[in-house]
């Protein structure tokens, strides 16, 4: 559009007849224009891809580090800590009581993190304010029992290999939605390589469609 405006300004107001004068100048301009275009494109694309996620997500450190791998070795499978209650509901992140099944006021190991745990939480009888990577919004109902007990799914399918990790990554919270980056945003393009890369409704639906032949009715997963 500005090209046209350009012309009308340069040309006569009566007629746009002589619009294509000064070819060489235009070519130069175009050449420069292309360069500017490329530079602007690259800068904007890169910042949109690399800088933007940094701005979009706020990083929060967990209260202290937790070594999943070590605990799996000591305590056994995921469900030794992330267990079901008798009513079939899932406990999620263990409460302090669960930790105290093994831990006590005396540290078991020698890590600094355990010292923090004992001093700030065990002795104070305070729950650890963990950030939950896989927390879904309030409108979502999710039955762990249906998926792991009945459908026999692995924890890994949705949660990835967190059980093999030795340290906790920082919790990244979307500044707009308040969602954890693990729900969607691990790959900022939304590209999914592993089943645990995203946990949005479409991801649930995809699997449901495959496994049950139906994406499911609203109330299956909503409350």
């Amino acid at each position: 559009m500005s090209e046209i405006e350009n012309k009308t300004e340069n040309g006569s107001t009566e007629s746009a007849g002589e619009g294509t004068t000064g070819d060489t100048k235009d070519d130069k301009g175009l050449g420069l224009g292309v360069i500017f275009f490329i530079v602007a494109f690259v800068v904007c694309f890169l910042s949109g891809t690399l800088l933007f996620p940094k701005l979009l997500y706020s990083k929060k450190e967990q209260p202290f580090n937790f070594d999943h791998a070590l605990h799996v070795d000591e305590a056994g499978d995921c469900d030794s800590c992330h267990s079901f209650r008798e009513d079939g509901s899932f406990t999620g992140i263990p409460k302090l009581d669960t930790c105290l099944d093994c831990h006590s006021e005396e540290a078991l190991g020698e890590t600094e993190d355990e010292a923090v745990f004992v001093e700030e939480y065990v002795l104070e009888e305070k729950e650890v304010p963990w950030y939950v990577y896989s927390r879904q919004p309030d409108c979502v109902f999710f039955s762990h029992a249906a998926h792991t007990q009945t459908a026999g799914m692995d924890c890994v399918t949705c949660h990835g290999h967190i059980g093999e990790s030795t340290s906790l990554k920082p919790y990244e919270e979307n500044r707009i939605t308040g969602y954890s980056r693990d729900i969607w945003g691990k790959n900022i393009f939304g590209i999914k390589k592993n089943s645990w890369d995203r946990m949005k409704m479409d991801d649930c639906a995809e699997c449901h469609k495959e496994e049950t032949g139906h994406k499911g009715y609203c109330f299956q997963c909503h409350k």
């Binding site: 046209i4 012309k7 007629s15 746009a16 007849g17 619009g19 294509t20």
Partner: peptide, 8 residues
Amino acid sequence: DTINDSGD
């Protein structure tokens, strides 16, 4: 048309 001036 603009470029080829068939405007009027």
